[in-house]
Simulated scan of single mutants.
Amino acid sequence: MSTTKVQETYVPVRDEVRHRHKFENDFARVYDVLIPPGDMSDYHEHVEDTLYVCIAPVAMTDQVWGEEDVNQFNVPAGISMCRPHRCDPLIHRVGNIGSNDMHMVGVEVKASPPWVAAAPLQAKGHTELWDHTRMRAYRLSLESQESTGAFTYDFYGVTILLADTNYHYTDAVSSRSMALKAGDVIWHEGPLQQSITNLGESPLEAIVVEWL
């Protein structure tokens, strides 16, 4: 008696239930990855260049569709990267073999913006991390009660919070505070003249990424 192995299928990342849609516009689609300990995503396909930011440290597995090998990684919080899925599509599934929730934010680059900054950002609290053909990333760090002073985001992009914080900003038309959680995402379209102040008691940590 013979048996036949059932061929596994995959879904677009948009339809994978653990990759939870947050918001979308003409330039970006943002989703939140949340996988409890011991759980695993379905096989899913990535076809757009994607920014990944790890919010919480995690021990994870990664298995490419059709392959038997299962890779294991320990990923620290705060890691950010861009993977070029538009020219190198990926079908895989990821699992959580750690003791805490796997929490990541993914941002797909849907289109290039109408303009880009003439030079990398130079503003207090911002440190350039890496430069990709479609994105440039910075780490934003402010101690309690510290402010950036006035500066300009002369680009389209996102800010992704790495920790809970009381985020206060002032721009040309408003001044307000926001109680933000780790993993929250702010979309901004430049030129945005503003100042940012950390009104919380702990450091403000975020990843800021500009579209190129």
Rank of each mutant, 00 (worst) to 15 (best):
L161N: 03
W187T: 05
H132A: 09
S99Q: 15
S177Q: 06
L192W: 15
A111T: 08
T61P: 06
W115A: 14
S141A: 12
M1E: 07
R29D: 01
Q7P: 00
P36C: 00
L51T: 00
T127K: 14
M104A: 12
S80G: 08
T133R: 13
Y52E: 09
G183R: 03
Y169F: 11
V209G: 02
P36G: 01
D15S: 06
Y156W: 14
E128I: 11
N71C: 07
V209N: 01
E128W: 00
F151H: 13
D69A: 12
A123K: 07
P57K: 04
R29V: 01
F27D: 02
S174Y: 10
V109S: 10
H132R: 12
N100K: 11
V58S: 09
H21V: 02
Y153K: 06
N96T: 07
M40F: 00
K181M: 06
D32G: 04
S2Y: 07
I79Q: 11
E68L: 08
T133A: 14
A172V: 02
P120A: 09
Y31W: 06
G125E: 05
T197K: 11
R86T: 13
V75A: 10
F155N: 11
K181R: 09
L192G: 04
M102Y: 15
D131C: 14
H85T: 07
F27A: 01
A179G: 02
P203W: 10
C82Q: 14
V209P: 00
E128N: 02
A137Q: 06
C82V: 15
Q122D: 13
V11I: 09
Q72Y: 13
M135Y: 12
E205Y: 01
G106Q: 01
R83H: 11
I35Q: 00
G106H: 03
L199D: 12
C82L: 14
D62Q: 06
R139S: 10
L140R: 05
Y10N: 03
Q194D: 03
V11D: 03
L140G: 02
D26C: 08
W211A: 15
I97C: 15
E16Q: 03
H168S: 05
I186T: 06
H103L: 13
T152V: 15
H188E: 09
T148K: 05
Q72E: 15
K22E: 10
A77G: 14
F155P: 00
G66T: 02
Q7V: 13
C54W: 03
A179V: 05
M40T: 11
V64L: 13
V209T: 11
T152M: 10
M135V: 09
V173F: 14
V17I: 08
S112Y: 04
L212Q: 11
M102V: 05
I91M: 07
L90E: 12
T3L: 14
P57E: 06
P114G: 11
D184N: 12
V47W: 04
Y138H: 08
